[in-house]
Design a protein around this nucleic acid. Structure first.
Lengths: 191, 191
DNA sequence: TAATGACCATTTGAATAAAATGGTCATTAT
DNA sequence: ATAATGACCATTTTATTCAAATGGTCATTA
């Protein structure tokens, strides 16, 4: 008879529950029930609820990394890659249940653990954008600059345009955003 | 005997109290006491607490406008002006008690009235930045672009750099911020 | 040896009572 | 007359309390 991989069951159950109810509203009893496992068993694999949550966030980060890396094209130039990566991230955020739930929990309740987790996710996105930018600098496509600040600014600008702008204005189309990115960050405003 | 300008007293007291305690923690009794005025008197000038608050926010907006406009030099070119305006706004935000308190209240408690007020302040800053940008376009200093989106992006980028960046990194110096601004938005990253 | 769930200390949340607050208006002062 | 006032009221906010829920443990069981 097959030995049941309890750790896997727990992780799956936790992922499901965090996606459905968020961090705070997920209880360890619930996860145990969902995983068909005794509550104590969870604690043989994860020291705390937060550690279990971190495991789930790690796979989220890995998923995003996969999404981003499959969008990248090393032969394409930087604007193309930045655009692809950012729009993939955006699509991901809009469609991925766990992400949606956590963004909501962060905004509405400000749960500390969730804020920190989202911070970690953002940092990891910045890390891969940093690599893209470094490559572009090496190739001589763009000026020498701090790749991390640059990645940070790009991400913030992108999210401002897709999230904040439409609070007071009709949303920008995808191509408009690319055009704005090109104008502001790459070509520059100066004549 | 001099007739006391009670409206003025009320406004001064309110400004002081909102600066000291924020919106929620300021009570109408308190304002009345501070202004040496009966509570009912406040209501002969302002229909509600929110209306009183709006009055204070209006002067805040006017103060910022004055600060920005006195920093501007129409004969200077845009890089110079961007530098001056940003530095002034930066100093203002750091030193102006009311602004500090309201930013804090918005972040920590999310008071609806405060969120809306800050939104209004932001919108008004964007409006005069828009005018500045339009002027630069007319003078041919910068490329043709939508002045409002441009103002919006500039402001968001500025706030990202001064507020969000230092959550994970040592804060950027004023001159660094100006340099980054010039690099990203004006000169552009392209080689 | 691995898994479990009854159990425990602490935290959370519901219920309620008490205090505080925004706003009104009959009365008072000018 | 008009302007100012503060006691007063309805509603909201806060403090208190206590039961239910929760994260985590560990002696028992498989």
């Amino acid at each position: 008879m097959a030995v049941i991989d309890r750790k896997k069951l727990i992780i799956e159950a936790a992922a499901k529950s965090f996606s459905l109810y968020g961090y705070k509203a997920t209880t360890m009893d619930q996860v145990a029930k969902l995983a068909n496992v005794g509550k104590g068993t969870i604690y043989t694999f994860f020291k705390t609820k937060e550690e279990l949550f971190d495991e789930i966030i790690n796979s989220l980060i890995a998923d995003i990394r996969f999404e981003v890396e499959s969008a990248m094209d090393d032969s394409a130039w930087i604007l193309e890659n930045v655009d692809r990566v950012l729009s993939r991230v955006h699509e991901f955020r809009k469609s991925h249940q766990l992400t949606i739930k956590l963004i909501q929990e962060e905004r509405d309740m400000g749960t500390q653990t969730v804020v920190e987790a989202m911070q970690r996710v953002e940092q990891s996105i910045i890390q891969y954008m940093k690599a893209i930018i470094q490559k572009a600098i090496d190739k001589g496509e763009i000026k020498t600059c701090d790749p991390e600040v640059t990645a940070f600014v790009m991400l913030k600008m992108y999210f401002s345009l897709v999230n904040d702008w439409q609070r007071n204005h009709p949303p920008l189309k995808k191509e408009e955003i690319v055009t704005l990115f090109e104008l502001y960050l790459l070509k520059g405003l100066l004549n």
